[in-house]
Design a binder for these strands. Structure first.
Length: 807
RNA sequence: GCGGGUGUGGCGAAAUUGGCAGACGCGCUAGACUUAGGAUCUAGUGUCCUAGACGUGCAGGUUCAAGUCCUGUCACCCGCACCA
């Protein structure tokens, strides 16, 4: 024991155990093992050149702890990792530095793997996937072709968000706020024929599937809102003096008698159809052009002041009253939602109200209870219908139902649903993405690449600069573009667009089950064995797009019989963000970025892990604090220093039995609910208790090591080994507590007077109420408070407190 | 504007069913021990000079008892945003 040093050598210990772990197959999942399977999934990283940041560490540590614990619990754990490696940053870096993205990607992945191992993550590195590997994206293309085959992938004209700087078409999500997600320049609108995936066809299924996904409130609500289902009705308003009917969507069919005008979106086809009847066509056209020039973002931003033009010469007929009502064109109605036309009910809709006030239109009350002189009355809970012959006196909900039935019976409308979610624009004009496996033939049209010809590989070329026209760089490569039509054998051209980054990540969790299969995306047996992901953790920012996209792909694959489960994930959680010490989001420009490798260099990986888990509630965001790191290291050193105190007993020290069992129980429930901060606090308390004693038993010490192992595995393995064990802690049995040993014989009771704590006593547990009350009253301290006063009431909570109310 | 979340010491944060507010850690203060360290150990540390009182964003309420429940309100963060 003379060599014992009071602080452990993190570098030496961590290197030693990482070598042992990663050269063995300790963390490798075993297909078809008899053990119960457990699939823990974390969102795989984009291997950026900057390497791992502190956010990765926190994101992976949650299920890292769970995975290490599950192995000890005897589960066959699959805890895989891979790389979502297609994407713009790599391509841009490659262009800037004149290195091929393939080389950049390989280098970044290599760095990442090294860094992940430096932190001691127990990933199964034998199953890594790389979305840019042709053996992987072959199956991404295969799924696309299946969707094409089923009519779920189609080409259509769309107004797309175009970033003139990145020269790339962006999704709505990537151009939020009218700015390019990546370079922050202004996005412009551009008309283009692009690929779509018909995710809207799965909208209802994706909503239903949420009932089969365990997650917290915010995760569920964000998905629900993103899908954005609303139920209502289509109503057909005849266009006066024509056979045409103007179709509108409304959730408030009950207010139809209050519809005093119609509004159509600037892009609405009605304008073209009736151009010759429009008296003020020039004025309308001018408005239309002005509106089209604005991006969708600008239209929203300028929304405070509503604008519009009345279409003169054109009127609609209210199908219930037969009265003629004016039609307006205005950009507060979106062509992308509903039918691009609305019936305006200013009395009961704030936007219509605003518009009516500005253009001095009639505001007709049809629901009583509000004050329409002042504002629109939109409350649907109270008021009854008025001025509505068919539904007068009814409550809103009943009125809606009755009205929809009436409309349907008279062929004036029908029940309908609308979703905010739009079809998924599925292409990019970039080099570094999965080629879309489609061929254009002059004779045969749009022809899918035959399955046996997959993968359509990205050509290894030197020039992958973007074109000025928004075309993909692949368009510049004749050897790629020119091909023969698989149907007729005549010369044809390839699609040059590539898939968006979300493609590869929409099914990667399936590939982990069978990463080297060249016959199928994964074998049926393995898909059956591993089943659904038991627990999926990732960032809150991916809860809408990625989570929904991947659920969509899985549901599709289920529908075509490829995967055995509708919903891919059983449970989804999301970690909070680690902010800079200044409480701001970490960013290079703010200069508040913490590099996890610096922390590992200075304090060791175990310390980093312990601190990151201890910093706060796992699901909340928290500022970084370097001083806290020292505390974590101090704790681990304390654990290390217990070593010389250990005797050879294989029984828990009698006096420690209670706290040991409490700690096992507490850590168990804390780990399972992601409360790592309190779990570590409990282990600190236990360590402090050990420290108070002159000696502790081997059993006491080993217990602590097993509990702490998922958090600080290197240190625990090292001590475990020093204690003489040949086997690793990896598969050592996880401790369980003895419920009988949790019962305290003597418990503290609080005695309060009028709710204020005045005394504390210790009694045997489960003392009868009357006895406890008498005991409390007999305390000298308490007597001094009750003397000369009247006791009005005594509340006794067994095993907890006695409260005496006096006057 | 709508939806969700969070407000507790000097700091990060704890607190089953309402039942000792501030566990645990950082920082700080004093002392011990030194072969002076990234030390370690001991004691203390919500506020008010003290007794005693006051303390969980703010204002009310319910209760023997409120960080926790109810009503109102403010601030910050995240998401959505003219969604008919």
């Amino acid at each position: 024991m003379s060599e014992f040093v009071p602080s452990f050598d993190d570098k030496k210990i961590e290197k030693k155990w990482q070598d042992i772990w990663y050269n063995g197959d300790y963390f490798n999942a075993k297909d078809f093992s008899d053990k119960e399977k457990y699939y823990a999934l974390v969102e795989y990283p984009y291997p950026s050149g900057a390497g791992m940041h502190i956010g990765h560490i926190r994101a992976y540590l949650g299920l890292e702890v769970i995975s290490r614990k599950r192995r000890m619990e005897g589960k066959n754990v699959l805890f895989p990792i891979g790389f979502d490696a297609f994407g713009l940053p790599t391509e841009n870096y490659a262009i800037k530095n004149q290195i091929h993205p393939r080389i950049v990607t390989d280098k970044n992945i290599e760095t990442f793997i090294k860094q992940l191992k430096t932190a001691g993550f127990s990933f199964d590195f034998s199953r890594m996937v790389d979305t840019t590997d042709p053996d992987y994206y072959k199956w991404t293309q295969w799924i696309f072709l299946k969707m094409f085959e089923k009519g779920l992938a189609y080409k259509d004209i769309a107004y797309v968000n175009f970033c003139p700087s990145c020269k790339v078409i962006l999704s709505n999500e990537e151009s939020q706020g009218g700015k390019c997600d990546r370079c922050d320049s202004d996005v412009v609108q551009m008309e283009k024929k692009v690929w779509f995936l018909k995710i809207t066809e799965y909208a209802d299924k994706l909503l239903e599937g949420l009932n089969d996904l365990e997650c917290n409130n915010r995760i569920e609500i964000e998905q629900r809102k993103w899908i954005g289902k609303s139920t209502g009705a289509y109503i057909y308003f005849p266009v006066k003096d024509s056979n045409e009917r103007l179709k509108v969507f409304t959730t408030r069919a009950d207010t139809i008698y209050g519809a005093t005008f119609m509004v159509i979106a600037p892009e609405h086809q009605l304008l073209e159809k009736f151009a010759d009847r429009i008296v003020n066509l020039d004025e309308v056209k001018a408005y239309q052009e002005q509106a089209l020039r604005k991006s969708e973002f600008e239209r929203i931003e300028l929304s405070k002041d509503k604008t519009g033009v009345r279409i003169k010469g054109l009127e609609a007929i209210n199908p219930l009253t037969n009265e003629a009502i004016p039609i307006f064109i205005s950009d507060y109605v979106m062509i992308t939602y509903g039918t691009g036309a609305i019936m305006a009910v200013p009395a009961h809709d704030t936007r219509d109200y605003e518009f009516a006030r500005k253009y001095n239109l009639e505001i007709r009350e049809v629901i009583e209870g509000g004050n329409i002189e002042v504002e629109a009355y939109t409350d649907i809970s109270g008021g009854k219908l008025v001025n509505s012959p068919l539904i007068n006196g009814l409550q809103v909900k009943k009125a809606i139902a009755k009205m929809i039935k009436h409309l349907k019976d008279n062929n004036l409308g029908q029940a309908a649903e609308q979703f905010k979610m739009k079809d998924w624009a599925f292409n990019r004009q970039r080099y570094w993405g999965e080629p879309i496996p489609i061929i254009y033939c002059d004779d045969c049209g749009v022809v899918p690449v035959p399955y046996e010809d997959l993968p359509v590989k990205l050509p290894m070329v030197e020039n992958f600069m973007p074109t000025d026209t928004g075309e993909s760089p692949l368009a510049n490569i004749p050897e790629y573009v020119n091909c023969v039509c698989p149907k007729c054998g005549k010369p044809a051209k390839r699609e040059t667009d590539t898939m968006p980054q979300w493609a590869g990540s929409s099914w990667y969790f399936l590939r982990y089950l069978d990463p080297f299969n060249d016959k199928e995306l994964a074998s049926k047996d393995k898909l059956d064995y591993w089943g659904r992901v038991d627990w999926y953790n990732g960032g809150m920012e991916h809860v809408t797009r990625h989570l929904i996209y991947s659920r969509f792909w899985n549901q599709f694959l289920y529908d075509i019989g490829v995967v055995p489960h509708k919903e891919p994930y059983m449970k989804r959680t999301a970690q909070g963000m680690i902010l800079g010490e200044d409480n701001e989001k970490m960013s290079k420009s703010r200069g508040n970025v913490v590099n996890p490798l610096d922390i590992i260099e200075a304090y060791g990986a175990d310390t980093l892990r312990t601190y990151v888990l201890f910093i706060s509630d796992y699901e909340m965001s928290t500022p970084w604090n370097e001083n806290g790191v020292k505390g974590a290291r101090r704790f681990l050193d304390k654990v290390w220093r217990l070593f010389p105190k250990v005797n050879q007993s294989d029984q828990y020290t009698k006096d420690l039995e209670l706290i040991i069992n409490q700690t096992i129980q507490g850590v168990e429930s804390d780990f399972e609910t992601l409360k790592f901060n309190t779990a570590i606090a409990k282990m600190m308390i236990l360590t402090n208790e050990y420290n108070k004693l002159g000696e502790i038993s081997k059993a006491d010490y080993e217990l602590l090591l097993k509990l702490l192992y998922p958090v600080a595995p290197h240190l625990c393995e090292e001590i475990w080994n020093k204690l003489g064990h040949k086997d690793l802690l990896v598969f050592e049995k996880y401790p369980t507590y003895d419920p009988k040993k949790l019962v305290e014989d003597v418990i503290p009771i609080v005695i309060s007077i009028n709710g204020k704590v005045r005394d504390k006593i210790e009694t045997k547990r489960d003392l009868p109420k009357a006895e406890l009350e008498a005991l409390a009253k007999s305390q000298e301290k308490i007597k001094s408070y009750t003397e000369g006063k009247t006791i009005i009431k005594v509340i006794v909570v067994p095993n907890k407190l006695v409260n005496i109310v006096v006057k």
